[in-house]
């Protein structure tokens, strides 16, 4: 089950790299977060960790339901252009993505036996970080860069789940709180842009 979910997690991230419409990017981010939440819930059930299940549910509520809606609202409110054509051409992206994936597998080889979960999961979460960085770099528009950062947060969360079976609850909540503050700051920046 987790294999399938992690596969879809990477697939949504890779798809979002090729997206050139803003709302489609929000959609992929929402699906990516939903899958992440499900990974948390499933792993929580497998390892009998209630904290992980709770964090999975919170992830779905905040990142799948609230954040995409808030971003959509911001887009309408501040009349942000929805065309986000990447500055890196698709043919280069198709080469870069596998290179990143192979590189992270190579990076993780010396510690393959360390993890209780499948080591592929850790490699995928590290590659998700690099792919999110690529997403930030390939867009000129600020709003797309912000979504890239949110994808990066998801990669961090995935790494936290698969490499350590979840960080302590207080730290996870702190990270969520920071994420909410991040959204608040974005809203403020857009609001007072023309002041």
């Amino acid at each position: 089950m987790i294999n399938v979910l992690i596969g879809f997690f990477t697939a949504t991230l890779i798809t979002s790299l090729f997206t050139n419409r803003l709302f489609r990017l929000y959609l992929w981010y929402g699906i990516n977060s939903l899958i992440l939440g499900l990974i948390g819930i499933v792993m929580g059930k497998i390892y009998n960790l209630t904290e992980l299940v709770i964090m999975g549910i919170v992830t779905i509520v905040v990142k799948f339901l609230i954040i995409p809606l808030v971003l959509k609202k911001i887009t309408f409110r501040f009349k942000i252009s929805r065309d986000i054509t990447p500055i890196i051409k698709i043919q280069y992206l198709t080469i870069l993505v596998p290179v990143v994936l192979v590189f992270t597998y190579y990076l993780i080889t010396p510690v393959l036996k360390t993890f209780s979960t499948h080591p592929n999961f850790v490699a995928i979460s590290i590659s998700s970080l690099f792919l999110s960085l690529l997403l930030i770099m390939e867009h000129k528009r600020m709003i797309a860069k912000i979504v890239g950062f949110l994808f990066m947060e998801n990669a961090l969360f995935l790494l936290g789940i698969v490499s350590t079976n979840g960080m302590p609850m207080l730290i996870e909540l702190g990270i969520f709180f920071d994420l909410m503050m991040f959204i608040l700051i974005i809203n403020l920046l857009f609001k007072y842009q023309g002041e």
Binding site: T114, F149, F182
Partner: peptide, 30 residues
């Protein structure tokens, strides 16, 4: 205005890299 946006993105990337490292460090000793 431009620099505030730039700070938000670059600062957030830097801080995310730190968190990423922290998770790996946590995994190394858990």
């Amino acid at each position: 205005n431009i620099e505030a946006w730039r700070y938000l993105i670059v600062g957030a990337i830097a801080i995310s890299l730190i968190l990423f490292g922290i998770i790996l460090i946590y995994a190394s000793s858990k």
